[in-house]
Design a protein around this nucleic acid. Sequence first.
DNA 1: ACCTGAACACCGTTCAAGT
DNA 2: ACCTGAACACCGTTCAAGT
Lengths: 238, 238
Amino acid sequence: MAEQAETLRRTPLSRDRILRAAVALADGAGIESLSMRNLAQDLGVVPMALYKHVANKDELLDGMIDVVVGEIHPPVPDADWKRAVRQRILSARQALQRHPWAPLAIESRNMATPAILAYLDSMIGTFRAGGFSVDLAHHVMHAMGSRILGFSQELFDASRRAGRSGTTNPDPPAALPPEIAARFPHVAEIAMAASHDDASVLGQGCDDQFEFEFALDLLLDGIERLQEQGWASPRRLR
Amino acid sequence: MAEQAETLRRTPLSRDRILRAAVALADGAGIESLSMRNLAQDLGVVPMALYKHVANKDELLDGMIDVVVGEIHPPVPDADWKRAVRQRILSARQALQRHPWAPLAIESRNMATPAILAYLDSMIGTFRAGGFSVDLAHHVMHAMGSRILGFSQELFDASRRAGRSGTTNPDPPAALPPEIAARFPHVAEIAMAASHDDASVLGQGCDDQFEFEFALDLLLDGIERLQEQGWASPRRLR
DNA sequence: ACCTGAACACCGTTCAAGT
DNA sequence: ACCTGAACACCGTTCAAGT
């Protein structure tokens, strides 16, 4: 214990070590536990020491995002743009799912980090190589939105609320309380149908992976159709 | 000035008055300026007085979200589910655009507020009335994600960063710096094409409304096709 | 019983004093 | 020149003292 802390203190601080410790802290204890002070304590260092390597907390968050995005597998070469895009996005999803705090952190930053720009650039490249016009590739990227990084941006996502906890198990199915079900009959109908579905869902209300792929394929199929039809933006003169 | 403050102090506090002041504060000064202390000061009241009407800051945020969602127009009756859904979502978009902080606030909460549940319920009702199975309506709602509330959840959204400011104008087009353009050629290609587009975009890079409707129609067209084909989830036994 | 000032346990970051 | 403790200007919320 004391030895480990001593070892940590001996290892010189570096931006990289700070970023990895910050990601580990957010993964384990939740993003709301990520403070400069807590992070410094984890590293066995005085808070102000961090400021030699990151300008401020915002830059720390940018760096953490780049660590996560850097975990996305490189694109696999594939003659079929649709398969290539689909696979890369599902791989991004796997990376992002290891860091439940990342989606909200990414969305709350307001400029793309270098790693995200690189990811987007290579994704656009896949579309372009598949014969997409600049025009169509552009709008398609917008249409994919945050789904392109593998998170579907559900309106509410209980999974990202806090860090992993070994002791507390995930929320039980939580059948809709009767007074809610009465006020929102259509929501109740869907909740009931979903909870009666097959057992692979393990008592969860919805199968997140299924919903993600459903939406992804809906988009990709529509995009394929536009591309085959030679769609062009009405705002362009030709 | 002093008279106005006096008038405000005379008006008794109420949950509703607190919520409206909080929305106005977030609209005007940005969500990062919304603190219990600032809000109390705007209301001419001591901070602790707020806690008689809202349990804590989280509940305040829930209430603010309900104020915004309450501004969405009720659904217009329409025999065509597709037109009805499209119009309601575009109306939601208008309401949400008046409160740039709302999308991120909604996504960071982790349970649906009553107003959002009511909105979702009525949206599901429109699909069901249009002949959708419970199964398809369910997955369609997931596929729409946050787009159903009118925000496309772009990966980065400069517009929500801070409050409206009368003095500083929106960021200029900001042509991609050359070293960025060199590292990310596909991003640069799209940025260049977009900035050369017709003048209706007013120098902005992209036409947000166009991108939103492009993605919305992509989804709605795909959904229509599934419904016409009688799509059923593979996880259901029949 | 109600209201509220002071206090508590935190923040991110500045700055000057120490080496 | 570098490092760092104390301090500053904030938070949300508790709590006890005042009416």
